[in-house]
Computed example of a mutant assay.
Amino acid sequence: MSQAPESADEIVRVEHDGEVAIVTLNYPQRRNAFSLKMRETLFEVLYRLMYQDATCRAIVLTGAGGVFCAGGDISEMKDRTVLDFRERNLLPLNIFKLMAEGPKAVVAAVEGFAMGAGVSLSAVSDYVVSASNTRYACAFIKVGLLPDTGLFWSLAQRVGAGKARELVLSADEFNGEEALRIGFANQLAAPGEALPAAIEVAREYARMPPLAVAHLRAALAGGIESLDEAIETEVNLQPILRRSQDHQEAAKAFMEKRPAVFVGN
């Protein structure tokens, strides 16, 4: 990694490995529980990386202490008004939207536990590298709640509607090997090896034309469920990319038999 963490004391740490930003949930004493402070900081970090940091072209999300995220912080689940709860729910949903439709790809490196919101943060990522012994559970129903942080959408995108229904209703645990089998994870790693594997995947994403990646992620997040939607998306976006410097560079590099150098324009 080319740079030291911006702060070892932050509840969300950021390191840079070339064009890859490694974002670490850093609350290991509570298994990286998705506390209010963590949500606030993660949103700020992701927004900056997505929209303000031109040196970042792909993001890896992981957790400190050999744990990804054990879900919501139970100590913060106090009695509040319905309006208060609605307002507090907006922040994790904004994080979900950033991860789902922001211009840069996100790779999850999952170890240890991914419960509740940990499942949600994994599911919305573009690519999930899971340690084989990771324990997952969509445990919301066990505490009398609905799936949150966008899991209603992202889980079915990964495993299909039927399997998603089974996972959220049963709240049964499944491990990394099962996650790979059902399509929740994209790649399996040995325990302790998810992060380096995820960084390698993110490096490949970082080499892609940034403008095309941004448009592709936005289109996929918007949903293409019919023939007309597919045609409309292609007609509206393809001409923009045809005119881009990156497309022209890719065509020129192909003819000259050299690697393309993309600038995001």
Rank of each mutant, 00 (worst) to 15 (best):
R88Y: 14
A218D: 00
L121D: 07
L91W: 07
L83P: 14
L42K: 00
L216T: 10
V201A: 05
V110N: 10
F68I: 09
L169A: 08
Q248L: 06
D9G: 12
G72D: 14
A164F: 04
V20M: 04
A219W: 00
L151P: 10
L169I: 06
R30Y: 15
L145Q: 07
D73R: 15
G65N: 10
V82I: 15
V119A: 02
A123N: 04
Y136F: 15
G116H: 03
G102Q: 01
K142S: 12
K257C: 07
E225D: 09
Q52H: 05
P209L: 09
V60A: 08
M99R: 00
A114P: 11
D172E: 13
G223M: 05
P147D: 03
L93F: 10
C69A: 13
L227R: 03
A230P: 04
T233L: 11
G162I: 05
F68G: 11
I199P: 01
P5D: 09
P196A: 09
R48Y: 07
V201M: 04
L169E: 10
Q187P: 07
P210I: 03
L220K: 04
N94R: 14
T62V: 13
Q157Y: 01
L93Q: 08
E225Y: 12
L91D: 10
E249H: 02
K78W: 04
E6M: 08
D84S: 15
A185F: 06
